[in-house]
Amino acid sequence: MSAALCLGDDALVLSHRLGEWAGHAPVLEEEVALANIALDLLGQARVLLSLEGDEDELAFRREERAFRNVQLVEQPNGDFAHTMARQLYFSVYQELLYERLAAGEGPYAPLAGKAVKEVAYHRDHAEHWTLRLGDGTAESHERMQRGLDALWRYTGELFRPVEGLAEVDWAALHGAWRSRVEDVVGRATLTLPEGSDGSGWSAGGGRQGVHTEPFGRMIAEMQHLHRSHPGATW
């Protein structure tokens, strides 16, 4: 299991999920925001996958079981609040992880140093929406809470050590993530579910190539063009 593949697949798969919002976002500004975030993640994925091999081969020719992303990023978009809950959980994690990698001298330091600034902006965006929806109307509050609850079971997997990232103290990363997320969620008048974040049972297996059912359909669409028209360019 290569770290470049794990981090690259996280970025690629979340990028694709966010791209699915194009044409469906609730307001034009968010349409643009989600596409911009997706573009940043795609850029990161390209750099990371290129460290491992041919980026197109890896993105478009691998089978489902060869992908090493965490299950959180492959979860379907749901409603806008559900997507924001996924963004909050993941962007806080990604920012903290990249901060640590950027401070080290490993092969991922240059990319992490660049990407951490982009991800900080994604995290800021997710925090704003968590506050706005959580502390908004009864309807928005309920939907945001539902999103946080539904995705919670996928957060434990984020902190299972990734081979090759020796500079990361995963327990400390988990603690920092938990306090940051708890702070935002508290200010948004929302609550985090108990357990299932690594202390109790949690879903997982993405890093070993075990994915949830919706992922197969997602990559079928993502890879369709490349597989149907090999070598196509424009």
Binding site: E29, V32, A33, N36, I37, L39, D40, K117, E118, Y121, D124, H125, H128
Partner: peptide, 30 residues
């Protein structure tokens, strides 16, 4: 600030409260 994201990744969308014109702002990245 109207929108934190605009026509490209490097810009945000703002509006002037005096002349009312919307404009792009090249976001600080430090």
């Amino acid at each position: 600030l109207l929108s934190r994201f605009s026509s490209t990744a490097c810009k945000a969308l703002r509006r002037c409260e005096d002349c009312q014109e919307p404009f792009d702002h090249f976001k600080e990245l430090t």
